[in-house]
Write a protein that binds this DNA or RNA. Structure first.
Length: 295
DNA sequence: GTGATTTGACCGTT
DNA sequence: AACGGTCAAATCAC
């Protein structure tokens, strides 16, 4: 991607106060996550510790979401502007005046972002493909997906899938936004989080600039969870990574997850070739340099 | 018949 | 003007 993504659908103007709150919360989130990792290591086998921290991290994530919405100056979902008027019918005629197709890309950066490298596009969640595009700087076209429940449940989760440049047998999948849809087959995230701590897969939190390297347990069943759960777990992983990191997930479907944590502003060092994206998004979303931020 | 996918066009941003 | 993201008519699959 050569172009820098833009920030928000309309206004990037954010109050200084709000910015400060975001930064402080990022610190809180980072410290909490680090503490969580350490505690989990120290108290391996104690699922209560993990469950409590999942709750804590979940609350922090929700607080970020609320703050994010507030900073966008809206009460509703980030993209409610040009999507809410849409009628969930298939055939729509070209709207001569109000149509803003393709116009607003900012919603994407205003929500959470995860990059996953996977051998398959099947992640257990139901996606609907709505476009495919040849990307200038990429060998392979990029496919665009939205959650099937976008209209019936207002789920704003999106993803982009593209064959990896260095490994054409694998997809680089970018998950954008959180699933807000409810799928009855999905195990409640808290149930997962409590149980996953018992399991054995390795997450490696890259050192980044902080010289911190940590490991934590992640469930072997992680990749088989429905996407909604995946989102949740991953966001927790995101929290846990705090400083930066990449995740070595079970070698089933999602071998590598990279998480440019746009909400906390942590740069993600990664095994993928997507570092630049993390930097880009950080700059665009928060307008500050993460190196300076963590000095 | 219904829902998903394909694909060219459109639109906002850079 | 180039680019990436989205729309929506046409088409496909079940």
């Amino acid at each position: 991607m050569e172009q820098k993504p833009v920030v928000a659908c309309g206004e990037a103007e954010d109050s200084l106060a709000g910015d400060s709150v975001v930064r402080e919360m990022a610190k809180i989130r980072a410290s909490t996550a680090q503490l969580g990792v350490l505690l989990r290591e120290a108290m391996a086998g104690n699922s209560t510790v993990g469950a409590v921290f999942e709750e804590l991290e979940g609350s922090i994530s929700r607080a970020f979401s609320l703050l994010d919405r507030k900073q966008q100056g809206g009460d509703g979902p980030p993209s409610s502007g040009h999507q809410s008027s849409e009628i969930p019918t298939k055939k729509r005629k070209v709207n001569p005046a109000g149509d803003r197709r393709g116009g607003c890309r900012r919603r994407i950066q205003s929500s959470s972002l995860r990059i996953v490298k996977s051998k398959t596009l099947d992640d257990g969640q139901t996606w609907r493909k709505y476009g495919q595009k040849e990307i200038q700087s990429a060998k392979h076209p990029r496919s665009y997906f939205r959650c099937t429940h976008k209209y019936d449940q207002g789920c704003m989760a999106h993803r982009q899938a593209q064959l990896s440049e260095d490994d054409p047998t694998a997809y680089v999948i970018t998950y954008i936004g959180e699933h807000t849809c409810r799928d009855p087959t999905v195990v409640p995230p808290t149930m997962i989080s409590a149980s996953i701590l018992q399991d054995t897969c390795l997450i490696s939190f890259g050192a980044g600039d902080h010289g911190v390297r940590q490991e934590a347990s992640v469930p072997a069943s992680f990749a088989s969870q429905k996407q909604e759960s995946d989102e949740d777990v991953a966001s927790n992983l995101t929290s846990a990574s705090s400083s930066s990191g990449y995740f070595l997930l079970p070698a089933t479907e999602n071998p590598v997850v990279t998480t440019p944590d746009v909400t906390s502003g942590f740069h993600t060092a990664t095994g993928l070739d997507m570092d630049f994206m993390a930097d880009t998004y950080l700059e665009d979303v928060f307008g500050f340099d993460d190196d300076e931020f963590f000095r």
